[in-house]
Structures are given as structure tokens and as C-alpha cells.
């Protein structure tokens, strides 16, 4: 997942991006997978990276921007080291997901789609993680946590540095 990648390895990040271009050279409909891979590399989608992708595959930059702002997976601003995705889906909603959200949001001092100042956490919501049997549910990075209470959610989150 998105871990902190600082200025120094910008060059190596671009080198990695170049490799990704080679992989998608002959792939039809490469824009979205390219943006996904670029976001893996850079942690978010800087404007210059989107511009480079557009040039590379001959797609208008305006279109790339339109695609990147359409899908909720793409982020145009740097995000935290740990991504918290609290489910607000139906099953979680009826089992008190709103309270969990409120507690986590208060504890971290950030609202939906915001990042803590120390870049440790980004708080997001998602509509159903497909683990409704364990509602309420959240994902931290790639781990799923279920049967949450406000306190349990906060305790789990604290385990991610």
C-alpha cells in the first residue's frame, strides 16, 4: 500500500513508471491500469505524472484528468501512510457504523477523505467491503477488521504506525 515515499526517490519512481509503460505498450484500454500502477508508485497522482501518462499513450491530458477525478480510487493529493476505510454500507449502517465513524473521526481529528497532519492516517469511507457478516467493518490498508465498536476500531487503528 501507499507508504511514505519522499522526494529523494522521485527519480527512481519515474524509472519505475517507465517500466510500467513498457508493460502496457500493447494493451488496449491502458489508461486506468496505468493510473492505478502510477498511484501505487507515487502514493497519489501528481499532475506531472498524469501528463506524462497522457503523452505516453496519446490520450488528451484533459481526458486523463477527467478519468482520474471520476473514480474514487484515485487521489490527486498525497495521502497518509495508512489508509483507513470505514464501511458505511447498508449492513454496517444498521449495526451502528455511523457511531464508529464519529469516534474514529474525533479521535484522529480528521473528517472523511482527510489526512492527519503527521500523514499517519487517511480516513475514508466505503460502501460495503463485502464482509457484512461481521458488520460494522473497516479496512486498514489491506487488512479487514470486523465486529467493531467505537473503542475497538480506535484500538485497532493505533496498531498501524
Amino acid at each position: 500500500m501507499a507508504s511514505c515515499k519522499c522526494e529523494q526517490n522521485l527519480e527512481s519512481q519515474y524509472q519505475e513508471l517507465q517500466k510500467v509503460f513498457d508493460k502496457y505498450r500493447t494493451v488496449q484500454g491502458a489508461l486506468i491500469p496505468l493510473l492505478q500502477e502510477a498511484q501505487e508508485i507515487f502514493g497519489y497522482l501528481p499532475g506531472d505524472v498524469m501528463k506524462k501518462i497522457s503523452r505516453e499513450i496519446g490520450v488528451p491530458f484533459s481526458k486523463t484528468f477527467g478519468v482520474a477525478t471520476f473514480y474514487s480510487q484515485f487521489h490527486l493529493k498525497p495521502r497518509g501512510r495508512n489508509i483507513i476505510r470505514l464501511c458505511q454500507g447498508t449492513a454496517c449502517h444498521v449495526r451502528g457504523a455511523a457511531k464508529v465513524f464519529e469516534a474514529v473521526s474525533n479521535d484522529l481529528g480528521v473528517d472523511r477523505n482527510e489526512t492527519t497532519e503527521d500523514r499517519r492516517y487517511t480516513l475514508e469511507t466505503v460502501a460495503c467491503l463485502g464482509a457484512c457478516g461481521l458488520a460494522p467493518v473497516m479496512m486498514v490498508n489491506d487488512d479487514t477488521h470486523g465486529r467493531l465498536t467505537p473503542d475497538k476500531a480506535i484500538a485497532e487503528i493505533k496498531k498501524y504506525d
Binding site: 458505511q88 454500507g89 447498508t90 449492513a91 460502501a127 460495503c128 463485502g130 457478516g133
Partner: peptide, 11 residues
């Protein structure tokens, strides 16, 4: 794409 909140049969 199973996006329906509350559904996870496809998954």
C-alpha cells in the same frame, strides 16, 4: 463489480 452495499455473494 458487485457494488451493492450489503451484498457479497459474487465475492
Amino acid at each position: 463489480d458487485e457494488g451493492d452495499p450489503g451484498a457479497f455473494m459474487d465475492r
